[in-house]
Amino acid sequence: MLTIGCHLSSSKGFEAMGKTALEIGANTFQFFTRNPRGSKAKDIDPADAEALNRLMAEQGFGKILAHAPYTLNACSKDEKTREFAWMTIADDLARMEYTPGNLYNFHPGSHVGQGPERGIELISAMLNDVLAPEQTTTVLLETMAGKGSEVGSRFEELRAIIDRVELSDRLGVCLDTCHVYDAGYDIVEDLDGVLERFDKIVGIGRLKAVHINDSKNPFASHKDRHEKIGDGSLGFDAFQRIINHPQLRELPFYLETPNELDGYAREIKMLREAYGE
């Protein structure tokens, strides 16, 4: 069965997200741990978290994916900005244990002129500081589009971060289809070749999730503007190949397209119909 969901608001709590996912035909979902443009995190109600855990077990959900705020930059030039990112991610990982065994995704960050190597060094140092042997959450580095000084648009950069992290068994990768296409990996015409390259550099076993998004911009544009499935430069046929690819089809897919719930429901239905059982 295709494991697919979308980004849901966490404002009404954990169980409400699970019920909303079911209403739109999803069997997983993504959510922000806190305000995506800020720092405030809503207090967790343990009973609400446990209600979601029960619902997911009863309904056969795939792993849910928590997303760190966009504002975090673990490789900033500014020490206070780095410290804020470290403290926020550490707090998020502690909160994730209310829904154990799931996924936490973050944008590696921007080196802002320090150079990719320095960025990689700072990101890996942060991960060495916050990862713990007892945690049940797998932390995912997201593939990026390569805007400005972003770290993580090349598979080699992701590998370099992983190699510097002591608890690397707690790390994985979330492949974003818009981002990798905008970064110059041609998943439309050469999906097999891109995955072969990922496997050679990072290891296909590190791939734990897929952000499934079309792109408003052309190949290798380094822009990062998501589009609805089939309405962008990747096109629907590419997504049919992606969700059915032997190395991807068992992974959870998370829509981040510019939609409201009814639009997500249409995309989920469309992709389920294209998925070969």
Rank of each mutant, 00 (worst) to 15 (best):
M1P: 15
M1S: 15
L2P: 13
L2A: 11
C6W: 07
S9N: 05
S9A: 06
S11R: 14
F14H: 15
F14G: 10
A16Y: 09
K19P: 00
A21Y: 07
A21F: 00
Q30R: 04
F32D: 12
T33R: 11
R34V: 03
N35H: 07
P36I: 02
R37S: 12
G38N: 02
S39R: 15
K40D: 02
A41Y: 04
A41L: 06
K42S: 11
D43S: 14
D45T: 03
D45Q: 12
P46T: 10
P46F: 08
P46S: 10
A49N: 08
A51Y: 04
N53Q: 10
A57S: 13
F61C: 10
G62Q: 07
K63V: 09
K63A: 12
I64S: 08
L65N: 12
H67T: 11
Y70C: 09
T71N: 15
T71Q: 14
K80M: 11
T81K: 11
E83W: 08
E83H: 06
I89T: 11
D92Y: 08
P100S: 04
N102I: 04
N105D: 04
H111C: 09
V112P: 00
V112D: 09
G113K: 01
G113R: 06
Q114E: 07
Q114W: 04
P116W: 07
R118P: 02
I120Q: 00
E121F: 04
L122K: 15
I123Y: 10
L127K: 05
D129C: 01
E134R: 02
T136D: 07
T137F: 03
T138L: 13
V139M: 05
L140T: 13
L140W: 10
T143Y: 02
T143K: 01
A145S: 14
K147H: 07
G152E: 10
R154T: 08
E156C: 04
E157G: 06
E157H: 14
L158S: 02
A160K: 12
I161Q: 04
D163S: 08
V165T: 03
S168G: 09
C174H: 09
L175Q: 11
D176E: 10
T177A: 00
T177W: 00
H179I: 11
H179S: 12
V180K: 02
D182A: 15
D186Q: 01
D186E: 01
I187Q: 03
D190W: 04
R197M: 12
F198Y: 14
K200F: 03
K200V: 00
A209Y: 03
D214T: 01
S215I: 06
P218G: 12
F219A: 02
A220N: 15
D224M: 06
E227F: 03
G230I: 08
D231M: 15
G235R: 00
F236N: 05
Q240C: 14
P246E: 10
P246T: 07
L248Q: 04
R249E: 03
E250L: 06
E250W: 00
E250M: 11
P252T: 13
F253E: 12
F253C: 09
Y264E: 04
R266V: 11
I268T: 07
I268R: 09
K269T: 15
L271Y: 01
E273W: 05
